[in-house]
Amino acid sequence: MAKTILIVDDSASIRQVVGLTLKSAGYEVIDAVDGKDALTKLDGRKINLVISDVNMPNMDGISFVKEMKTKPAYKFTPVIMLTTEGSEAKKRDGQAAGAKAWVVKPFQPAQMLDAVSKLILP
């Protein structure tokens, strides 16, 4: 069965590009526009990987990951954070919250695919 990836980003274009890239590599993709939306999208589903932006309205990425990790079903779900260059502090916050992997924006679709494949298989 295809692995499912949840993309959380408030930018529609990023969701689109990342989504298309991952779909073409054989993953199932679900998207969410912010942390709150993502939490609702999680419910009940089997999610293999989460890709989340940090800076989002309503609920930011770090709070979302913290919240997600409290749910037993998602405790071991790997998370890739999308950070921007120079936000080392944010990166550390994210790691503390349980998001160990990160990809620095701006990134090429292939780069994202590479990071994903380090964590899960198609």
Binding site: F76, P78, G98, K100, L119, I120
Partner: peptide, 17 residues
């Protein structure tokens, strides 16, 4: 590592590339 959602096996598979 496992708590962080990382699966050692997937790294080893990736290494195979």
């Amino acid at each position: 590592v496992l708590r962080g959602g990382m699966d050692p096996l997937s790294f080893l598979r990736y290494l195979g590339r």
